[in-house]
Amino acid sequence: MSSAVQTEQERSRVRAHRRRQSKNWSLFLLFAGPNILLILAFIYYPLFSNMYYSTLDWRLGSSTATQIGLENYAAFFTSDSGLEVWRVTAIFTAGAVLGSMILGLLIALVLNKKIPGKTAARTAVFSPYVLSGVGVAMVWNFIFDPTRGGLSHILGFFGISSPEWYLNEDWSLFMVIIVYVWKNLGYCAVVFLAGLQSIPKDLIEAATIDRAGPIRRFVSVTLPLLTPTVFFLLVTNILFSMTNAFDILRTMTPTGHGTNTIIFEIYLQSFGAYQRAGYSAAIAVVLFFTLFFITAVQLRFVERKVHYS
């Protein structure tokens, strides 16, 4: 008798639990469902459909496509134009990352001093980072103009004639790196500044008492304690420079002559003159796995190294 009552109670408890569970689920889907659907439809689905498109020889807009297996990948890794994209991407990434990190660190070291007005300076230095890449590139297009630009006037003052920024491929690449660094260095400076301020003052003071000069203090105390910040910036900057630079590249060098990094090539191949959608999809897949690999390396190292304090 009593056991029957117990099971009855148990059953109703289970039922109540199930009811609560399903009520929770419907609430969860109401709150998170739309976002999850959007992410599935516009981030995950493209990721996998790209992998399928990448095996096709297919022109954008054409209704027929031929299966060609991994030929698109082979072409990207072996053809002259594919290797040129890798070369340009490597130079652009290295220049953009090193340039903005070194200049950013120098600015951060200066802003870390106790001087009035440094907050305003920090804001000004960071500001290009939030501006439209297209707008910024238009301004620099004017500055780099070999005959009318501000830079040609400055160089002319020193008796130097302006390089052919737009005609010579190497100068073009150098030019877009300069603009990217200009836009990005404030970000690095602010992150470095936060890293510098987290270094305990007594360590620096102790080094000063031991008669370490400013350079010795920087190399032996500041820099080692700054490695987590350096590592973080290195990774984020590589990721950003591989994906965020499109607006500058496209506005300053519309044809991509000498400046077609991976991201620019994805655009040019599918929406430029060639309309090689399959090839473009293959490059997009390669880009994704490159970024995925870099992030995975970062997560692995960050877990181990960053918690030094």
Partner: peptide, 10 residues
């Protein structure tokens, strides 16, 4: 981790 550029074509 997926930049929007990768999903552009699909």
């Amino acid at each position: 981790m997926v930049p929007p550029e990768v999903s552009m074509l699909p």
